[in-house]
Each structure stands twice: as C-alpha cells, then as structure tokens.
C-alpha cells in the first residue's frame, strides 16, 4: 500500500483498508530478540497462542516453524510461556548486520516522525 500524497488521494470517510497494517514493521521497536531452538520445540503452540503480535510462524501442518522478525516486538512472552525453554531472549544489538525479512524501508512508516 502506498501512502496518500495529497488530499485528493485520501480515501473517503476516514477509511483505512483492512489488514493494511501488514506494511508496518513493528520489529523495529525490538531491543530483545527471541531465538527458537527447533530441536527443543515440541510445537505445543503455547507461544503461538500467547504472542500479542501474531509473530509465531506455523507450518501447514500447524507446527511452530519460526518467528517473524518483521513484526516481533521482543516482549518475551513466548520465551516465558514455553514449557521446554525452546525460546531464548538475546540482545537485538547482536544481530545488527542481518538483513530485514520483509525488506521494506522503515522510513516509509516512520518518515514523518523526525
């Protein structure tokens, strides 16, 4: 979705299009990062159920298969509710050189806030 550039482009009636927040990279907020150990994970789905940001990825068979770093805010609820300690929290600073998953320019979301 591209943002309106002038008043004529603004959708009518205060409308926002459904699910358009999927463009918003809330992962930029993160200071701690959850890391999933697939070998320990028993796919009980507790983390998936309790993640406030719907960032636990599941496979077609309904198994936990990763964490979406584009959205994960690093709250640590997943690590806390995991019964087998398959998720551990790490400093986000340790991952600074990594490419972002979604590849979106964060400036597009936060550009007006200088």
């Amino acid at each position: 979705m591209s943002k309106p550039k002038c008043w004529q482009d603004v959708p009518p009636a205060t409308i926002a299009w459904g699910a358009s927040a999927l463009d918003v990279e809330t992962g930029l907020w993160r200071s701690m990062r959850p890391v999933l150990d697939q070998n320990k994970c028993i796919s009980c789905l507790k983390c998936w159920l309790q993640c406030p940001d719907s960032s636990i990825k599941t496979s077609e068979e309904g198994r936990v298969c990763g964490i979406n770093m584009f959205f994960c805010k690093g709250c640590g609820v997943c690590a806390q509710v995991c019964p087998v300690n398959a998720i551990s929290m790490h400093q986000e600073a340790d991952f600074t050189n990594e490419k972002r998953e979604h590849g979106e320019d964060p400036g597009r979301v936060a550009g007006h806030v200088k």
């Binding site: 309106p4 002038c6 008043w7 603004v10 009518p12 009636a13 205060t14 409308i15 926002a16 299009w17 459904g18 699910a19 007006h112």
Partner: peptide, 27 residues
C-alpha cells in the same frame, strides 16, 4: 464502502494525527 461488506473490509474512525487529519477535513 459499507461496513457490512465482509469480503472487502474497511476500518472507519481511524486514529489520525497531524499527518492526515487536515486532508480528511479537506475532503
């Protein structure tokens, strides 16, 4: 854009700061 069109969902009454409030009033 009827709210009851569940196949084409829209949100009414968004939270809009100085970024677009003015433009919406202009419409």
């Amino acid at each position: 854009y009827p709210l009851l069109d569940v196949d084409n969902p829209v949100s009414y009454g968004s939270f809009t700061m100085s970024e677009y409030y003015f433009e919406i009033k202009r419409t």
